[in-house]
Each structure stands twice: as C-alpha cells, then as structure tokens.
C-alpha cells in the first residue's frame, strides 16, 4: 500500500484530533452491542445510568444502572482497552431492575448501558465521565 502526501496529511490531522478528544467508542464497542442485541435496533428512554461527572480516580468509579422491566443490562466503557464491563441479568426474585457497582476507566470516556427489555426490545443510554489525572501520582 502506498500513501499519497494528502493521505498522510489527513491521517496526521486525524491523529491530532484523536489525541485531543476523550477516548471514543471503537469497533469493539459496536461489536459488543451487536453481540448483546443480536443486531436488533436499539432505542432510547426507559434506562438510566448514574455516574459522577468527574471521577477523582479511574480505578474506582461508582456507577448505577436502572431500566424498569429489563431482563438484563450490559455496561460498556467505550474507551477502555476492552470495552466490556459487565452484564447484570435479573432473576425472578429481583426487587428492581437496577444495580450499582464500581468500575475501572482508563481515562475520560463514554460509559454505555444497554438494556434488554421483557418484550425483547433494547434501549441504551450513555454518560461521559471525566477522569482526572492528578499531579501527585504518589
């Protein structure tokens, strides 16, 4: 494969822009969603993701997901080396269709939650979480 000067310039610009932006969704995030939904279309609404705007440390970021009537909620961190975070499957004795946990984020990025509802449809939501990089690595 050969690159023209213009290709190289465009790629260089792309790299600069990428370096300035938060970590964004990659193909593997799309793949993970497709694997969960079986390729079905994904709507919005009826799902809540609660997370801090800013996390003091990416090692332990508290999040909660809620989707009334969901049978399962998958959480993805689009900017992590591997976007999978976990999937909550709710059983017959679930008291609500919500759960909280603590997750690792490699940097500022979108966290995505996708719920499978009882009728087999899917909804999703996302939130950007800023991860601060401190001056005192200590």
């Amino acid at each position: 494969m050969t690159f023209t000067r213009r290709d190289t310039l465009v790629m260089g610009l792309g790299a600069t822009v990428a370096a300035m932006l938060p970590l964004r969704a990659t193909a593997s995030t799309e793949d993970a969603i497709a694997a969960f939904t079986g390729g079905a279309s994904v709507g919005t609404g009826g799902i809540t993701l609660t997370a801090p705007e800013i996390a003091e440390n990416g090692n332990t970021v508290p999040i909660s997901v809620s989707a009334p009537g969901a049978t399962a909620i998958m959480v993805l961190a689009a900017g992590n080396p591997n976007p999978d975070v976990g999937t909550f499957n709710f059983g017959p004795l679930a008291g609500s269709h919500e759960a909280s946990t603590r997750i690792r984020l490699a940097g500022t990025q979108d966290v995505i939650a996708v719920a499978k509802l009882a009728d087999g449809s899917f909804v999703q939501t996302s939130a950007e979480i800023k991860v601060t990089i401190g001056g005192c690595g200590g």
Partner: peptide
C-alpha cells in the same frame, strides 16, 4: 488550590492507614 487536577489537602494524617483508590 490545585496541582493540575489534584485538589491539595492540608496533608493531615488522621485518616491513616488510608484506603487509597489509586492503589485499591
């Protein structure tokens, strides 16, 4: 004040040993 994004404390030691999120 802040060092970059770090909110500087008074460096008090009354909480030690500390569970530090960075080291988990």
């Amino acid at each position: 004040n802040y060092i970059r994004a770090d909110h500087l404390s008074q460096g008090q030691t009354n909480g030690f040993p500390v569970y530090r999120l960075k080291q988990a």
